[in-house]
Design a protein around this nucleic acid. Structure first.
Lengths: 248, 248
DNA sequence: CGCGAGCTTGATGCCGATCAATGCATGTGG
DNA sequence: CCACATGCATTGATCGGCATCAAGCTCGCG
């Protein structure tokens, strides 16, 4: 990590690109899905910049002018919306290969804050250029629309969770979602290290941190999990799944 | 309204287009925003079909193959996701000029159900053709992306509501949102007729219908509303706004 | 070793769910 | 035109889950 500049608003440090989309090991999860070699080259020339975002730093804030989407290259982020009176609601957690910034397209300003939960790197995708390139490359246009649509479907899932599930079910659904995404990145689907605090989980799930902690203990007592601080082992994935499917 | 066909799955009746996007009085709210005359003509030729959807009928269901977006031409819709065990969560209410179907793009199948709450008409927007046309017309591409992004921002607002507001605040926020959208369509911003039941409002807001009813009564007792069944008059818009802004 | 951030656990209280009864408007058939 | 049924809304009584308040606990770190 480069040392962050000493400005009032810490700016993530810019890095020259070492690797390109065409050689990125996340290309099957990210924007380049289904692109031909020549299309990948053009995408490479578009995604020419990478940013390092140290743990705890903000990538962009609500009301910042929108210019780019970002692809998480490595690390982990949370997105959050802030109310007039200063309270926060986490709206998402993002891992490698996932895209950030769709909230900015509609009004030319971002509508949420994005914070790195560990030292992270993102690829910068200038949006006007992406739009231009997607006019030439049908598969790129298609993939972009798909990703944005899935973001909507994902949000509907969270709305469903917040509207109709109880504490333990919420936590179970959350953990299943995390393990699934980790598994599709080649990580274990039973062993995970949480990148966020109980409070951040609670904010995401519409619960207080104490309730999250109690829910962890309950699931452990039921023999579904083994929890030690941020180390979580899923002992009974089917049981966890049953808990979610039954009431949800 | 044509009489619905007597099939196991009632199909909304198809109507020939009488009017086009170029002469639609919703064009400032819908997809045609900022299009030139020649662009509007091309859009007209794309949006060649209209469907009548009688009250209570479904426009599309989760898992139906995705082919089109729909623009609400007249009437009122709800969208809802259904859990494995059959419970429903309303994820949105849509009025004239708003678009339906973004949830289907990501997987080529819709992910929610869409039901008309009153006799309605929608314009059919074949998606592949829309994608093709948006490759030629930059303003159309831009507008399409904007609308989809706003859908995401809207969902974040609902997530915030579900995660951190209490019953009366949820209802206040809901009513303010409705009146705002009605006002931008030229309707009164203080007088409205609810198109949905207390139960549907409750499902949307993550509350039970009794709680919704009590919240209506409370807001009325506080002199903010005058409620008579589905007739609602906003007596004190600023007070309602204060209720939402204070805790949210 | 001592401090602090984050986590766990217990005791209590409140908001909204649940259960239940009543009210009100619309529609239908006698 | 009235009797009755039906769907939706309101209101009350009670219950339960989560929030709140309050200690302790654990671990990393200076």
């Amino acid at each position: 990590m480069d040392t962050p500049l000493l400005t009032p608003r810490p700016v993530p440090s810019v890095q020259a690109m070492k690797t390109a989309c065409s050689s990125c090991n996340l290309r099957e999860l990210c924007l380049p899905v289904a692109l031909q070699d020549n299309e990948l080259e053009r995408l490479d020339s578009l995604v020419a910049q990478r940013l390092a975002v140290p743990r705890g730093e903000t990538l962009y804030r609500a009301r910042d002018p929108f210019r780019s989407l970002y692809a998480v290259r490595s690390g982990f982020f949370k997105t959050l919306v802030t109310t007039a009176d200063g309270r926060e609601q986490v709206t998402g957690f993002l891992m490698a290969g996932e895209l950030l910034g769709f909230d900015g397209i509609g009004t030319d300003r971002y509508s949420c804050d994005t914070v790195a939960l560990e030292d992270s790197q993102v690829c910068v995708i200038p949006f006007e250029q992406l739009e231009a390139l997607s006019r030439d490359f049908l598969p790129l246009q298609r993939q972009f629309h798909r990703i944005m649509s899935r973001e909507i479907v994902r949000d509907h899932g969270l709305i469903l969770l917040l509207g109709s599930m109880r504490a333990e079910e919420r936590l179970a659904a959350f953990l299943l979602n995390l393990t699934q995404r980790l598994a599709s990145r080649g990580f274990s689907s039973t062993e995970l290290v949480l990148r966020m605090t109980r409070e951040e989980i609670g904010s995401y799930l519409g619960l207080k941190l104490e309730t999250v902690s109690r829910a962890f203990s309950k699931l452990q007592d039921q023999g579904l999990l083994a929890v030690r601080h941020r180390q979580v082992r899923v002992v009974d994935p089917a049981g966890l799944r049953r808990l979610v499917d039954t009431l949800c």
